[in-house]
Computed example of a mutant assay.
Amino acid sequence: MRDPLSKKVVTIEPSGIRKFFDIVSEMKDAISLGVGEPDFDTPWHIREEGIYSLEKGRTFYTSNSGLKELKIEICSYLSRRFGLYYDYDQETVVTVGGSEAIDIALRAMLDPDDEVLVPQPSYVSYVPCVVLAGGKPVIIELKEEDEFKLTRKGLLDSITDKTKVLVLPFPNNPTGSVMTKEDLEEIVPVIIEKDLFVISDEIYSELTYGRKHVSIAEFPGMKDRTIVINGFSKSYAMTGWRLGYAVGPAPIIEQMIKIHQFAIMCAPTTSQYAAVEALRNGDGDVETMREAYDQRRNYLVKAFNDMGLTCFEPYGAFYIFPSIKSLGMTSDEFATKLLLEEKVAVVPGTAFGGSGEGFLRISYAYSIDNLKIATERIERFVKKYRS
């Protein structure tokens, strides 16, 4: 019998995150600091709107591109929060999470062997999605001394005559790094001069601390070459509702909707009605959660620096990215031993690319009480292997 499997799919490695959580799910008294999921419940008024939509029998398909009311609210939200102006009808598509938006954006834009620049460490799905879309991922290694930001030099050094798309993953998962207005000003001229397109993953745009998120689409000349990806999972604690969106140039969005139409049909109707409520009345919820994350962020940064695992201050998302190089272990070795010996699950930096070696991703989407217990265990582990 012939091999039924696609060679392209077989060559893709499974997520480096999952194996630790397969273990921790079976381990009594274990604490996980690895999952990138808010520990808050979806705010009640948002859940109530979802329930109400079911009670009213709103269980039909919506338009392929999304519920009209939701697309209008998305565009209103982007204009008031980030100064981004899009047409709800021609430049907006509602997707099954931000992950689907990334996937269909790449599939809509890439021809075979087009190169896509992927800064790493970064979210685990970018490289596989490029491969599945027929493109060639080109890794830009971000450096700790640059606070894991994309620099003008790093960008220029990676561009070839086959480069078509740049993935811009900020605020960043796993490092918590952000790109300021000044940082973006350094790379925008390069993008325009080299005629690149950008997929800007801004799923953590509401989770920044001490500085406001700036979108690259705000810059002159960038709106027509940028797809902005966002969603509801992180900001509104709506991970299980599976709802995201993309906005961008109408010709690209049109082709994304075509793929979405054949692969998905439309995003879940109940989730879309709940998201309308989130955008209209959820600003206070976002602020409450952001304040809690900021408290946890400050606690963890100090705790890890105090135990000698140096950590730069992250200004976005809900992760810190401490260095473990002083212990002489690989990231995978550290994470495995920590889990087995102290029952604390963290993610090795290498799950997010080779340049993550020597680092760990620690999520602070957990209660302060859990973080305190976990850091006590990690400190005990560190002291053991230092002595």
Rank of each mutant, 00 (worst) to 15 (best):
M307K: 09
M109S: 09
P268D: 11
I203M: 08
P121K: 14
P322W: 01
Y299A: 03
H213L: 12
P249F: 03
T62K: 01
I257T: 06
F40G: 09
E91L: 09
I259N: 07
E182V: 10
Y123V: 04
E218W: 08
P268Y: 12
K223M: 11
D113C: 11
R18N: 13
K28Y: 10
S205L: 12
L132R: 14
K212S: 13
R80Y: 06
E147V: 12
Q255K: 15
A345F: 03
I159D: 01
Q261W: 08
P348H: 11
Y245R: 10
A365I: 00
L54F: 08
V178I: 15
E342W: 00
D39A: 12
Y299Q: 02
E342S: 12
D369M: 10
T269G: 04
E254G: 13
L84K: 05
L110E: 04
P314N: 07
Y86K: 03
T375N: 00
P249G: 10
H213I: 10
Y85A: 07
L155N: 05
L168R: 00
Y364F: 15
K19W: 06
L243F: 11
G154D: 02
V138Y: 00
K258Q: 12
E342Q: 15
L132V: 08
A303M: 06
P189V: 04
D114M: 02
G308E: 06
T175L: 08
Y319T: 12
I362N: 01
K164A: 03
F321Y: 14
G244A: 11
E185M: 13
P128T: 01
R290D: 09
V190G: 00
L279S: 05
F321Q: 04
R361A: 07
V167W: 02
I191T: 06
L78V: 10
T95S: 02
S323H: 10
G358K: 05
Y126T: 05
V10D: 05
L78N: 06
K7A: 14
K162S: 04
M179P: 04
E182H: 07
E291Q: 14
T375V: 14
G98R: 08
D157P: 03
M1L: 13
F262E: 14
F334L: 04
S25Y: 07
F232G: 06
Y52Q: 09
I362F: 03
A108N: 01
G50C: 10
E202R: 05
P121H: 10
M27T: 15
G221T: 08
D146N: 13
T208K: 03
D29A: 12
T160H: 06
E26V: 14
P249M: 01
I216F: 01
